[in-house]
Design a protein around this nucleic acid. Sequence first.
DNA 1: CTCCTTATTGACCAGTGGTTAACAATAAGT
DNA 2: ACTTATTGTTAACCACTGGTCAATAAGGAG
Lengths: 192, 192
Amino acid sequence: MSPRKPSTKDLTKEMIVNEAHKQFITKDFQQISMRSIAKELGCSHGAIYYHFKNKAEIFYAILSDYFFELNNTLDENMNGPEDHDTKLLNVFVGFMAFGLNNQSQYELMFIMRDSEIDGLSQEAANLSYEKFAQSVRFLSTTELLISDIHSTFIALHGFVAHYRHYVKNYEEAKEAVDVHAKFLMKALTFRE
Amino acid sequence: MSPRKPSTKDLTKEMIVNEAHKQFITKDFQQISMRSIAKELGCSHGAIYYHFKNKAEIFYAILSDYFFELNNTLDENMNGPEDHDTKLLNVFVGFMAFGLNNQSQYELMFIMRDSEIDGLSQEAANLSYEKFAQSVRFLSTTELLISDIHSTFIALHGFVAHYRHYVKNYEEAKEAVDVHAKFLMKALTFRE
DNA sequence: CTCCTTATTGACCAGTGGTTAACAATAAGT
DNA sequence: ACTTATTGTTAACCACTGGTCAATAAGGAG
């Protein structure tokens, strides 16, 4: 009647997620197959479907960690000791750096809208945006329009979406990131 | 000794491209298969490989038309009768409208960096960007930094990449497009 | 030792892009 | 007309993909 003890479990959700995550560092969502995960885990790919309903569910479990990390980065940049302008710049740079250093993950978080991941991560994406918007509003020295904050976010997103094709990590685009961040600072500072 | 005359050709490159293009209006690259094209054309999918070396080659043939259309749109907006500021705004709006009205195509032109399409369309994408940059430089009332133009392009790209998830065409995002375009105008106009 | 639940396997499905031997169809040379 | 070279086309095949599911192994509870 009572459930079997989890003492001698061979395959756990954690193991699956870990393996998927491991492959996720170097490959993207589409390049990782249920079979490649199973093979590395030494089990059949069918076994994974006992623990996860589908491929998307595994990767959503991973993505939530990355959303957490992105939110954390935002917080850290906001609570630094610098003046507001510097911190605002750091928020911009931090967002772009995150995107460029976690390209496969960023793709799934904000760029892909493929099938089932959708409904799951969209909420988290909106939450991250809200956090971003609040940070920017708080750090700005002038009263900002919501639309300006939104445009700024879109411009940051555009940077990551564009540069991920040309660059492997933040380091390789450091200068361009800085220039873009300063451009957005200029745009936000403008008063007519 | 001489090649067979093309008089009684059943299957032509044009027919294949047309069918692929037809499906490309409502489906995206990944959803269209060699078999779905062949089925509609009443031939085997193997036959297509006689005319095109792979799937990417078919879609590149289609994309070149869309790059042409985008460049045309840029020209039209630039050669209008309005004043420079209005035309510059039209260039921004025109780019976003193109992206939102041709989402599957825009994805392949600027967002996807999937396998073989890459090398082929990257050149065309760079050319389109050059055209955009020249237009902006010409239309601007003040001397612009190259980096500012680049940031502007990236911001426009970000808008399309973001809104394509929420909107089916330009009409549905008209207001947001306008707001974003004006934000970028502000950013470019700013002098410190 | 019998249940009964959990976990796992491996065959299977329908689909993908791509390759290739075989073959049909047509043209030109003799 | 017969042969031959070339062009197109087919259909079987390959190695994959995500996903399903009956059979089955493994272990705890009574």
